[in-house]
């Protein structure tokens, strides 16, 4: 090894140039970082300014007052969102997790490829088309709008998000862990349920929370499914049911069967009203929705980063 080849290169010049390029690029990166977070801060601050002063306790515990009068709240929208997100979660989470396990356990089978492909396609379908589809198969069949139809539409939104995030999280689980369980003679399902699921639990939960945040913010799938309902109030439905000596199941059926309101739906309707009180309330609804989604997102990201740290990434 002769040490003469680099004599032909002016190394100090190379170092100087690299340092210069380095500082320029670092500066650019910082600049664009700031640019990238401006929209988030802007939206948040703007919505807080416009909607913040209208938020009070009444807003959360009362139904809307008639148009043109002030006061009242959006209890129906909060409860409707809540009910439909729960319906969507119950429908979407179990099959999504099973699908994710399949994708991780048998990653290269034709079925897995097909599932992965169609999941990606499903994630890309415009949400209004999903709403229309559920309208055709649920609302038309049932002959009325309902919280159930809205929940089914939202579950279709959540499904691909959960499948892909759960698959990613399960892939992070070291292969040796699964093989360790199988080497003891454990059946696949037990290795999945008792070893892999706990190892990936936090990450999967994060994905679920993100999908819930996404579903909570959706308007389009609810337009032709949940429709909207200014009088959707669970407490009232339960009181009515008890007065008429209905069974728990019948009351639950009521809650699912009624057309329901949701926060984004209310926001969309109110924002088009000619009454200034309604428009103000729309801003307040926007704030509630934003805070809810932001909180879920922040919690989820926090858990995710915690999980990544645990795995030593």
């Amino acid at each position: 090894m002769q040490k003469d080849i680099f004599a032909q290169v002016d190394l100090p010049r190379v170092y100087r140039r690299r340092q210069l390029v380095n500082s320029v690029m670092l500066g650019l990166t910082g600049l664009f970082l700031v640019l990238a977070i401006i929209p988030l801060i802007w939206i948040t601050v703007y919505v807080i300014i416009k909607g913040g002063h209208y938020i009070n306790l009444d807003f959360f515990i009362h139904l809307p007052r008639p148009m043109g009068t002030s006061g009242g709240g959006v209890l129906q929208a909060i409860e409707g969102s809540f009910v439909m997100v729960i319906i969507a979660s119950v429908i979407a989470i179990p099959p999504a997790l099973l699908a994710a396990f399949y994708l991780v356990t048998a990653p290269n089978t034709p079925l897995a490829t097909a599932v992965r492909f169609s999941t990606d396609l499903l994630a890309g379908i415009p949400s209004i088309v999903i709403g229309l589809f559920i309208y055709a198969i649920v609302v038309v069949t049932q002959k009325h709008y309902s919280a159930l139809a809205g929940g089914i539409a939202l579950s279709t939104i959540m499904l691909p998000v959960i499948i892909r995030s759960a698959e990613e999280m399960l892939k992070l689980v070291p292969r040796e862990l699964r093989e360790g369980a199988l080497a003891l003679g454990s059946p696949e399902w037990k290795a999945a349920l008792r070893v892999m699921l706990p190892a990936a639990a936090e990450g999967i939960l994060t994905g679920i929370m993100l999908s819930i945040a996404r579903a909570t913010g959706e308007t389009a799938p609810l337009l032709f499914t949940a429709l909207g309902n200014d009088n959707y109030e669970i407490g009232n439905m339960i009181r009515q049911g008890v007065r008429h000596h209905q069974s728990v199941l019948a009351i639950l059926g009521q809650i699912l069967d009624q057309p329901a309101d949701a926060l984004p739906l209310t926001l969309w309707k109110y924002a088009q009203q000619p009454y200034p009180e309604r428009v103000q309330q729309a801003w307040a609804v926007a704030l509630v929705l934003l805070l809810f989604v932001l909180t879920l997102n922040i919690l989820a990201r926090f858990w995710l980063s915690h999980r990544r740290r645990q795995l030593g990434e």
Binding site: M1, I5, Q8, V9, D10, L11, R13
Partner: peptide, 23 residues
């Protein structure tokens, strides 16, 4: 590595690659 430090000439690189692989 050599390219990172500004070595571009084909003949020089050829020589260096051979020398390094021999080394």
């Amino acid at each position: 590595g050599p390219r990172l430090y500004g070595l571009r000439k084909k003949a020089l690189l050829d020589e260096l690659v051979e020398k390094s692989l021999r080394g």
